[in-house]
Design a protein around this nucleic acid. Structure first.
Lengths: 218, 218
DNA sequence: TATCATATATACTTAGAAAAAATAAAGCAA
DNA sequence: TTGCTTTATTTTTTCTAAGTATATATGATA
């Protein structure tokens, strides 16, 4: 039970988060405090604290005196997550204009290359990783800590959603790479109006794809 | 220690939140777990859990093995809070167009009247309450739960900020009432483009006032 | 089907030990 | 004396262990 070890609760939260994100804990599954504590050979206190954090992240849902369950996402949730992400990211991209260095741009290019590579190798996990890192790099360049936080929170929720959704969906990866190239290009122009437009658009497309392609219950 | 009582931790969180928001716990002050537990005559577990929630809300800052402290807000924080709130609210207002009923509009009118009344009576606290409720009513009409949540979180942070800022600031209340009337009017038009414009503008003004009028350190 | 007993899980308490950090005290060098 | 480092001492957080109380779910009985 030693990871980065600053405190147990956060380590436990990280572990459970991973368990949810890689499907070890499935959507809707019950989470038993006592069992987890026993499994990790720790007491229940830190487990309870970890669960509280994860609840605030939106990965689990806790009902008093009933139990905690891995969040299940409905169509409405997917809508919410993507629209909010779009909104935040469009704003972040505009703010990022002031801060993006040539080094940042090179990093974004690199991530795009990597993304393409992972697409060729059909490595879905690394693909998703590149995707997230690409967007995160842009958002972090906004230097708007609250915006960054909220965006990251939505990212993990997207991650949880991919499990219930994306596996069954043949994502058109080529188009994704193209779209990202467009985002990168418009960032280079530093034209804030255009940036806002393109970034907002980017997500309406994603959202449309999602609602067409997947039979999410809800 | 009986309030609505679903669970102790949430009650404790509510109490501490109030203590911060009404200045009983000042910005930067240390929060001692054991002392709080003793004060409320409960054990430390629930207190720790409450603090975890409040940290996620941004009202306190916890440093591992060091302690928890009431958040102090810098100029950058004020900027972040207001810009994000503006962004979220402009979006919410557009979504609300589909859902706002005549009853909602009457409620908003009422709140404006009340606001004016409280202004005349120079009741600052009720004024702030009306202000928050006015905006919250609009945001809630968006039916976008994540957006609503984030907005509420920013609201409490605004509340915390008022303590360090607003007392020293002669708010131009007349203008505030006028501005709110404008918001209400534009909502009635149901013109989404215009709504976005006016709502965004509303906050750039607030932000400008704030940065001119207050010497927030940061 | 409704009711009561039983079992399970959560919520909280109590008491205290381990570990980290802050504080105070002592020692030493300039 | 002053400034700095090292070494206790104390405080606070972190976590443990075991157990009680309470709410919910399960399941048997009528």
């Amino acid at each position: 039970m030693i990871l980065d070890h600053r405190n147990l609760s956060d380590d436990v939260a990280a572990i459970i988060r991973k368990m949810i994100l890689n499907g070890e804990l499935k959507a809707g599954a019950r989470i038993n405090q006592a069992q987890l504590a026993e499994k990790f050979k720790i007491s229940r206190g830190p487990v309870r604290e970890a669960l509280r954090s994860l609840q605030n992240e939106g990965l689990i849902k806790h009902e008093t005196n009933k139990g905690t369950f891995v969040t299940t996402l409905s169509k409405q949730d997917a809508f919410e997550i993507y629209t909010l992400r779009a909104l935040l990211e469009a704003e972040a991209a505009q703010l990022a204009v002031f801060n993006l260095t040539e080094k940042d741009f090179r990093k974004l290019e690199e991530l795009l290359d990597q993304f393409y590579q992972m697409m060729v190798e059909q490595n879905l996990e690394s693909q998703a990783q590149c995707d997230i890192l690409f967007h995160r790099t842009i958002v972090e360049a906004s230097k708007h800590s609250r915006l960054i936080n909220m965006h990251r929170q939505l990212d993990t929720q997207v991650g949880a959603m991919y499990l219930t959704v994306s596996n069954k969906v043949p994502v058109r990866v080529h188009q994704v790479v193209e779209n990202h190239q467009i985002l990168l290009d418009v960032l280079r122009t530093k034209d804030k109006e255009k940036i806002k437009e393109i970034f907002s658009e980017h997500y309406t497309q994603t959202l449309k794809d999602l609602s067409n392609m997947t039979p999410i219950k809800g």
